[in-house]
């Protein structure tokens, strides 16, 4: 029997090792696993068992976070297949994509000058979200049906750009709300 700490995250959750997954299954199994190992189950146990339980619960939390997130799940699958994507890695020259990124960034920088900045930001956020979803389904195709790994790597890198954009949108939204209300 292999230790659950060394199993890969898909094995741990008894899920097929592929990009597309059933989120309801993932959530339900996460809860089942935590019910079994969580430190609250071992609050009155020995120090040793409490340590083990914390390790396991930590591991399961991490696995869940990775599997739940479209970008992290994609990176993780690539890593399992021997094609780890580095943090600092940049996408190959794709002028169209870079142009699109520049346009989004300019739009973001100009939000404060809009008549209704929050509404404008909301529109922009939706556009970014839609693009991200498209990349996500392309990644599913590339990872679950494709033969090559390069297209998947490129898609992951593109998603990283959008993830950073989304974070900046959220920060700006927080700033705007704090100023307005």
């Amino acid at each position: 029997m292999s230790s659950t700490l060394t199993q890969n995250y898909f094995e741990l959750f008894s899920l097929p090792q592929q990009y597309v997954l059933e989120h309801a299954d993932l959530d339900a199994r996460y809860r089942e696993l935590q019910r079994t190992v969580h430190p609250d189950r071992y609050a009155s146990a020995s120090d040793q068992e409490r340590r083990f339980s914390m390790q396991q619960a930590t591991h399961i939390n991490e696995a869940y976070q990775v599997l739940k997130d479209p970008l992290r799940r994609g990176r993780y699958l690539l890593e399992l297949r021997g094609h780890a994507v580095e943090d600092q890695q940049t996408t190959h020259q794709d002028p169209e994509f870079l142009m699109q990124q520049i346009e989004f960034r300019e739009a973001l920088a100009g939000i404060r000058q809009q008549d209704d900045p929050l509404q404008a930001l909301d529109r922009l956020a939706r556009e970014i979200q839609a693009q991200y979803r498209t990349l996500e389904s392309e990644l599913a195709q590339a990872l679950d049906a494709g033969e090559e790994f390069e297209p998947a790597v490129t898609l992951v890198l593109k998603m990283q750009y959008f993830m950073r954009l989304q974070n900046e949108v959220q920060e700006l939204e927080a700033d705007l709300e704090d100023e307005l209300f």
């Binding site: 029997m1 230790s3 659950t4 741990l12 959750f13 008894s14 899920l15 097929p16 299954d25 199994r29 089942e32 696993l33 019910r35 079994t36 190992v37 020995s46 120090d47 040793q48 068992e49 083990f52 339980s53 396991q56």
Partner: peptide, 28 residues
């Protein structure tokens, strides 16, 4: 505690396997 380390570890793993056992194989 030191004598039973392996046992405690095995138990926790076995518990996890048991919970997940119902979901295995046919869902792949």
């Amino acid at each position: 505690e030191s004598v039973s380390t392996t046992y405690v570890d095995r138990r926790m793993n076995a518990n996890i396997q048991k919970v997940m056992a119902g979901h295995a194989v046919d869902e792949f």
